[in-house]
Measured scan of single mutants.
Amino acid sequence: NKEHILAQKEVLTPIEYEHYVKHLFDIGEITKELYIELSS
């Protein structure tokens, strides 16, 4: 869920976080809207 993803932002580097969010989007775990929101 969104809270879990945002928690990852605390422990990952910005680049790792971007890759993580992109991966979730690629596998269909999150919607495009959520992907855009989380990567901003």
Rank of each mutant, 00 (worst) to 15 (best):
L6K: 08
L12A: 01
S40A: 15
E10V: 08
I27G: 07
Y17H: 02
G28C: 04
A7C: 03
Y17I: 01
E18I: 15
F25N: 02
V11M: 13
E33M: 08
E37M: 10
K32D: 10
L12W: 03
I15T: 12
I27A: 15
L34S: 06
Y35F: 14
I5M: 05
I5F: 07
I15A: 15
I36W: 06
T13K: 07
L34F: 07
N1S: 15
Y20I: 03
Y35P: 00
L6I: 06
P14T: 13
V21N: 00
E10L: 14
H4W: 09
V11R: 09
H4V: 11
K2Q: 10
E37G: 03
E3F: 12
Q8D: 02
L6T: 07
I27E: 07
I36D: 07
I30L: 07
S39F: 11
F25M: 09
P14R: 13
K32A: 10
L34E: 08
I27W: 09
V11F: 14
Y35T: 01
H4F: 11
L12N: 02
T13G: 08
L6V: 07
D26S: 14
T13Y: 04
Q8N: 08
L6G: 04
L34M: 11
H23V: 03
Y35A: 04
H4Y: 11
I27S: 14
Y20E: 01
I30D: 00
L34K: 04
V11W: 14
E29W: 15
V21I: 10
E16S: 05
E29Q: 13
E29T: 14
K9W: 06
H4D: 15
I5T: 02
S40H: 13
H23N: 14
L24C: 02
I27T: 14
Y20N: 01
H4I: 05
Y20G: 01
K9T: 04
Q8K: 11
H19D: 04
P14N: 13
D26Y: 14
L38S: 01
Y20R: 02
K22T: 06
L24V: 03
P14L: 15
H23D: 07
I36A: 14
V11T: 15
L24Q: 04
L38F: 06
F25Y: 12
P14M: 07
L38C: 02
L24A: 03
Q8E: 06
I27P: 00
N1Q: 12
Y17K: 00
L24R: 03
A7T: 07
F25W: 12
H19M: 09
I27H: 15
S40Q: 08
S40I: 13
L34Y: 06
Y20W: 13
E33L: 08
E29M: 11
E3P: 07
E3H: 14
I15Q: 09
N1E: 07
E37I: 07
E18D: 09
L34H: 05
I15K: 06
E3G: 05
L24N: 01
T31W: 04
S39Q: 13
K9G: 05
T31F: 03
K9Y: 05
I15S: 12
K32R: 13
I27L: 13
H19F: 14
K22I: 06
E16T: 04
K32H: 13
I15D: 13
H23W: 15
N1M: 13
T31L: 05
I30S: 00
L12K: 05
I27M: 15
